[in-house]
Simulated assay, not measured.
Amino acid sequence: MKLILQWIFCFSLGFVTECQEKRYGLSGGSITLNLDLGNRSHLQDVMWRRFNRQELLANLKGVHPDIKRRMSLNVLDRSLTIHDLQENDSGMYEALDSWEKESLASYSLTVENNVSEPAIEVHGYNSSAGVCRATVNCSADGNWAQFDCDQHLCLEKDAFLTSVNITVTASDSVHCHARNHVSERRAQTSIMCHEKQQSFSRFLSPSFGSPRWSAVGFCWFCWVWEQYLSREENLQKFIHSPALL
């Protein structure tokens, strides 16, 4: 009931654009604009127009010949389906009664392309107090956002976003998410200084076979070899001593 009163209020004041339902379609795909006839099933005809009623698209007699290949009208529920969506299909669509006095439905359609795979740039590494920080730039389709990230959290510093929303998250790697209303793409990369910290931690770990224990083993081998050479030298001196000659 509230929705019906809102539509009556909007159309009575002529604020059609404020009452439009926003719809988003994928370029190359299809979308159906529905019409809730309610108690209007007695209507003899329904006319679909777009671009502020400047272009007639369809009525119960059929679809306009120029667009018949890409649009179809369901004669039972009067819904309009647009096929092979193009960016220039974006705009305002209205369903009107046969006298074009009453607006039965109004849509604001936006056609969007698939989001491109986002590009990630990581720079400005700074490792202090056991925390690795870096500046992360993520961009897609002319949109970009800059984040300050550590191993667990990314905070947005600056952004230029028009048609794509960009977010960045961090765990062991940096993940960039680029999305619009009809598609989403992701990309990821590693934080180098975090990896270095992990390598350094492994070096300090006392586990057997770690670089620390390898270094200890090498030093022990050097000591044994030094003792062996010393014994050989002393033996040679003893053999060639004057007492034995």
Rank of each mutant, 00 (worst) to 15 (best):
M1K: 07
L3V: 09
W7T: 04
W7D: 02
I8Q: 08
F9C: 04
F11S: 04
F11I: 08
S12N: 12
S12Q: 10
S12A: 13
L13G: 11
L13W: 12
L13T: 11
V16C: 12
E18R: 12
C19F: 05
Q20T: 07
E21Q: 12
Y24F: 06
G25L: 01
G25C: 01
S27V: 11
I31S: 00
L33Q: 00
N39C: 12
N39S: 15
N39W: 11
R40D: 14
Q44G: 15
D45P: 04
F51Y: 13
F51K: 15
N52W: 08
E55F: 14
L56C: 07
L56Y: 10
L56D: 10
L57A: 00
A58H: 02
L60G: 03
K61A: 03
V63A: 02
H64A: 05
H64W: 05
P65S: 01
D66T: 03
K68Q: 09
K68S: 08
S72Q: 10
L73F: 00
N74A: 02
L76S: 02
S79P: 03
T81I: 06
H83T: 03
H83K: 09
Q86D: 05
Q86V: 06
D89I: 02
M92R: 07
A95F: 00
L96S: 01
L96M: 09
S98T: 03
E100V: 01
E102I: 11
S103H: 04
A105G: 00
L109W: 01
V111S: 00
V111C: 02
E112A: 03
E117L: 11
P118C: 07
P118T: 02
I120T: 03
I120Y: 03
G124T: 03
G124D: 06
N126F: 13
N126Q: 14
S127C: 15
S128R: 14
S128T: 12
G130A: 10
G130T: 09
C132R: 11
R133Y: 08
R133L: 12
V136C: 01
N137E: 06
N137L: 09
C138K: 00
S139H: 01
S139C: 01
D141C: 02
D141E: 05
D141G: 00
D141A: 02
W144E: 05
Q151S: 07
L155M: 11
E156G: 05
K157A: 08
D158G: 06
D158L: 12
V164Y: 02
N165K: 13
I166N: 02
T169I: 08
A170W: 06
S171L: 10
C176D: 13
R179T: 14
S183D: 11
E184T: 14
R186N: 15
C193K: 07
K196R: 11
K196D: 10
Q198W: 09
Q198G: 06
S199R: 15
F200W: 12
F200R: 14
F200D: 14
F208Q: 12
G209F: 08
S210D: 04
S210I: 05
A215M: 14
F218T: 14
F218N: 11
W220C: 04
W220D: 05
F221K: 11
C222P: 04
W225P: 01
Y228W: 14
L229G: 04
L229Y: 07
R231G: 09
E232A: 10
L235D: 11
I239G: 04
S241K: 08
L244R: 15
